[in-house]
C-alpha cells in the first residue's frame, strides 16, 4: 500500500533476458569517474560495470563457500566462493548478519530454495526458469511459484531504478513501514560508501555495478549510484550489500579496493561475506549434457549417436521404427528385419538376426524371416517340407484325412480321390487293382439301383411289420394258455355237490326213489 497508485498492484518489473549465444559471456568495464555531490564537491570514484549477455545460462547466486553455506551461517571470501563455480566475475550479493553470519532475505540458488523470508518487502532480483529477469518487490506466492519458478533469487535493499527512473523515494516508503523511523534508513541511502548493485538494460542484458569506497569518506550514495546507472541506460536496478562487503573478483582475483582494514590495520582486506553473485561460463541444458556430451560455451557437444541440444536422445530414436532399437551405433534390427532403419524384411531365403541365416525349406516352402520356420505347401510336411504327406492324408500340414472309398489314394495337395493307379503315389499295383474293381462294381450297383423301381416299403419296414405280427401271435397264445390253466385250477377247488330229487331220468318211475346223481355247476 506504500506503492505509488500509478503502478497499481504491480510491484515488480520483468524483462526477458537477452540470449546472445554468440557473444562473450560478459564484458567487464572499469570506470573512474568524477562525481559531484549536492554541495558541489568533486570526488573521483572507481569501480566496475559488467555486462552479461546471456544471464539465464551464465548467472548464479552462490551460497557462501558452496551449497549449504547459508544453513551453516557460513561466511567466506568472494574469491573462495567464486572458485567453487569457476566464476569469471563474482561480486558480493545479499545482506547477512555480521554477528552470526546468517544469510538474510530470499535466496534461490540454481533452482534450489535456500531461504524464504516470507514475502519480506525488500528489493529483489531474480531470474525465472524461462529467462525472465525480475526486479522489485515480491510476495511469498511469487517466490514459491511453481509454474515458472525462480532459478536465481537474491534480496537487496532499495529499488534504485524502475523503468529507467530513479525509484529511491518510493523505495523508502515501501521498505519502511513508519516514516518517523526512516532516519537511519535515509542515512543509509544518503551516505557515500562502497556500493554494489544489479540491474538490466533495454536488451535484457544483466548489469553488475560495483564502486569502491569507504563509508562517509569515499564512494557514492544511492542517489549517485541510481543516476550513474540511469546514465548507463539501465532500466531497473536494486542495491545490494555495500560498505566493507563490496567486493569485485575478476577471473579469481580480487579486483576492487576493500574498505575494511586487516589486522593489523596497515593493509586493506576483503571481507568474508555471505552470498555471491557469480558470472560463469554458460551452462548447458542440462548442465551435464545428459552424460553424453561436453558443455562448450553453453552448447552441448554430443557424443556420436546422441542428438543435440541436450544429448538426451539418440539420433536414430525416431527412425528405427517398430522393428529396431536405437543405439549409439545406429539401429539394431530385430530378427527378420534389415536396413538402415530396420524397415525391410529379410530377403527371401534368409532369416534371423541380421538376416544372416539361410532358410532350409524344400519343395517351395516359404521361410519365416524371424525364426526360419518353414511353411510347407499343401501335400508336404516336415521341418524343411522335405516329406510328402503320408497315404490317407492331404492338404496343408497333411492334417486332412482322405475321404476316398476302398482305400483309394487321394491327391496329397487337393485331396481328390484317384481311382486309377498313380505311379508317383507309390501304391502297389495289386492294391490299385482292387480299388479299381471295387469301384467299378459299386458304380454298376448304383446304376442298377437307380434303374430299378423303388418298392413301396423298404426291407426294414417289412422286417418291423413281421416282428410286430409275430410278437402279437406269441402274446395271444400265451394268454390262452394262462386262461386254460386257471379254469383247471378252479374246477379242482369246487369239489362239493348237491343232490336234487329228480323225477325221472331217462324214463324212471314217478315215486321213484332217490338216486344219486351229479350236476355240474359252473
Amino acid at each position: 500500500d506504500c506503492q505509488p497508485v500509478a503502478h497499481g498492484t504491480v510491484t515488480h518489473e520483468t524483462q526477458a533476458a537477452s540470449k546472445h549465444s554468440n557473444s562473450p559471456v560478459l564484458e567487464s568495464n572499469i570506470f573512474i569517474s568524477d562525481i559531484t555531490d549536492d554541495s558541489g564537491t568533486h570526488r573521483w570514484v572507481s569501480g566496475h560495470i559488467t555486462e552479461v549477455h546471456d544471464p539465464l545460462r551464465s548467472v548464479s547466486v552462490l551460497e557462501p563457500g558452496g551449497p549449504g553455506g547459508c544453513a551453516h551461517n557460513h561466511r567466506e571470501l568472494v574469491e573462495v566462493t567464486a572458485k567453487t563455480r569457476k566464476c569469471l566475475v563474482a561480486q558480493n550479493g545479499g545482506y547477512f548478519d555480521t554477528h552470526t553470519g546468517q544469510c538474510l532475505g530470499n535466496i534461490i540458488s540454481d533452482g534450489k530454495l535456500v531461504r524464504n523470508s516470507g514475502g519480506i518487502q525488500n528489493a529483489q532480483f531474480g531470474i525465472r526458469k524461462d529467462g525472465t529477469l525480475v526486479f522489485g518487490y515480491l510476495s511469498e506466492d511469487d517466490i514459491l511459484d511453481q509454474e515458472n519458478p525462480f532459478v536465481q533469487l537474491i534480496s537487496g535493499v532499495v529499488w534504485l531504478l524502475r523503468k529507467g527512473e530513479i525509484y529511491i523515494n518510493e523505495s523508502i516508503q515501501a521498505e519502511c513501514d513508519k516514516t518517523q523511523e526512516t532516519g537511519n534508513f535515509r542515512h543509509f541511502v544518503d551516505v557515500i560508501s562502497a556500493r554494489t548493485a544489479v540491474g538490466h538494460d533495454k536488451e535484457g542484458k544483466l548489469i553488475l555495478f560495483h564502486v569502491d569506497g569507504q563509508t562517509d569518506v569515499r564512494g557514492m550514495n544511492l542517489w549517485q549510484v541510481a543516476k550513474f546507472l540511469k546514465d548507463q541506460n539501465v532500466m531497473n536496478a536494486i542495491n545490494l550489500d555495500g560498505g566493507g562487503s563490496a567486493t569485485y573478483v575478476l577471473n579469481g582475483s580480487l579486483a576492487s579496493y576493500p574498505s575494511d582494514h586487516c589486522n593489523p590495520s596497515k593493509w586493506r582486506c576483503p571481507r568474508a561475506i555471505s552470498t555471491v553473485l557469480c558470472i560463469h561460463e554458460r551452462l548447458c541444458q542440462p548442465e551435464d549434457c545428459s552424460g553424453h556430451g561436453r558443455c562448450v560455451e553453453g552448447q552441448c557437444v554430443c557424443q556420436h549417436g546422441w542428438s543435440t541440444p541436450g544429448c538426451a536422445n539418440l539420433t536414430c530414436q525416431a527412425e528405427c521404427g517398430e522393428h529396431g532399437i536405437c543405439t549409439e551405433n545406429g539401429c539394431v534390427c530385430d530378427a527378420g528385419w534389415m536396413g538402415l532403419y530396420c524397415s525391410q524384411v529379410c530377403t527371401a531365403g534368409l532369416y534371423g538376426d541380421g538376416c544372416n541365416q539361410t532358410c532350409t525349406c524344400a519343395n517351395g516352402g516359404s521361410c519365416d524371416p524371424v525364426h526360419g520356420r518353414c511353411t510347407c505347401p499343401a501335400g508336404f510336411h516336415g521341418d524343411s517340407c522335405e516329406q510328402e504327406c503320408p497315404i490317407g492324408f492331404y492338404g496343408l500340414n497333411c492334417k486332412q484325412l482322405c475321404q476316398c472309398q476302398d482305400m483309394c489314394p487321394c491327391d496329397a495337395a487337393t485331396g481328390s480321390c484317384n481311382t486309377t493307379y498313380q505311379g508317383e503315389r507309390n501304391i502297389s499295383l495289386h492294391r490299385a487293382g482292387h480299388c479299381l474293381a471295387t469301384q467299378m462294381w459299386r458304380e454298376w450297383r448304383q446304376e442298377e439301383e437307380a434303374q430299378a423301381p423303388r418298392p413301396y416299403l423298404s426291407e426294414q419296414s417289412w422286417l418291423v411289420v413281421c416282428s410286430i405280427l409275430a410278437t402279437s401271435l406269441l402274446a395271444s397264445l400265451t394268454g390262452n394258455l394262462i386262461q386254460t390253466c386257471r379254469k383247471c385250477k378252479a374246477r379242482r377247488q369246487r369239489a362239493d355237490y348237491s343232490y336234487l330229487p329228480l323225477g325221472e331220468i331217462n324214463g324212471a318211475t314217478e315215486r321213484g326213489e332217490m338216486k344219486s346223481g351229479k350236476v355240474l355247476f359252473q
Binding site: 519480506i120 513501514d177 575494511d260 582494514h261
Partner: peptide, 30 residues
C-alpha cells in the same frame, strides 16, 4: 589460511541498525 588476512569488518553499512534508533520492522506481504 595464514595467507588470508581477515577483514576487521570495520566498515559496516547496514540499512537497519539498532544502534541508530528504534528497532525497525520489515514489511511482510503474503
Amino acid at each position: 589460511c595464514k595467507d588470508i588476512r581477515h577483514s576487521s569488518d570495520d566498515d559496516l553499512l547496514l540499512p537497519y541498525t539498532k544502534s541508530h534508533g528504534p528497532s525497525h520492522s520489515h514489511r511482510y506481504v503474503r
